[in-house]
Design a protein around this nucleic acid. Sequence first.
DNA 1: AGCGGAACCTGTCGGC
DNA 2: TGCCGACAGGTTCCGC
Length: 270
Amino acid sequence: MPELPEVQTIVNELSQTIIGRIIKSCEIKRDSVIDRSSTDFRRAIRNCKFTSISRKGKYLIFQFDKPLWMIVHLRMTGKFILVADHQENRYGRVIFKLDNGLQMIFHDVRCFGTIELSSDIDKHKKLFSLGCDPWDKALTPESLAIKLRHRKASVKSILLNQSIIAGLGNIYASEILFDAKIDPTRVVTKLTLSQLKQLIKSTKKILASALKNNGTTISDYRRVDDKQGTFQNFLKVYGKQGEPCQTCKTPIQKIKQNQRSTFFCKICQR
DNA sequence: AGCGGAACCTGTCGGC
DNA sequence: TGCCGACAGGTTCCGC
């Protein structure tokens, strides 16, 4: 579900409300969401104060007032809800009770989401294996070309690989490739340096615009407290199969790549 | 090494 | 109406 712009929106909104708050207790409704026994988890997190919230790739990172971090991945359907009282909610998987009476609910229909605790964030394997941020200065056409030089996968597949660029998902991959006028099925080593340059440029452009719109709400993604993003109003290809391309009027194609939908214009994208 | 497919879990939608 | 398969914004594991 949420990609970089959605996760960043949630970071921004949670920061405004929970920095400085202390977790008084925690209720775990679904054990598979957390990375240890519920007893150990509750004990570790009790009386911790939130000092900052940040994002790496699609991971949310909550920092506390001691050497402890909570690392959350929302996967497809995870979201956070802040409420004064916890009405019984079928999909509330973990409920954090804060010192100001608010409850922060981790809500996740499909239960793919994960919550982990770490006492040494620099040694967290999954975070360590992430590629660079799209706005990282180290991301240049030349560095990308070197990193991809022996790859055989399509450019769409490479965009979804979090160890190369972190934060892109299925919606923005299609939108970025349309903006860059690159065929998603193209083997990545066949791209020219100027196409790689355009790819990086389009990535930053699309993500910045999505962020400005608080993300894309199609079905499940919600901001904190169920508010919706608005970038769905600006999508040009995702979910638009059969509709005319905004540039050349040719119907948008929908294909499957690695079991996932890709949308593109076969005329504009080469 | 790195690719594609299956699996994880739950809900919804479209077709017959 | 009812059932059944396909599909959903992600990642990990496995076999090749």
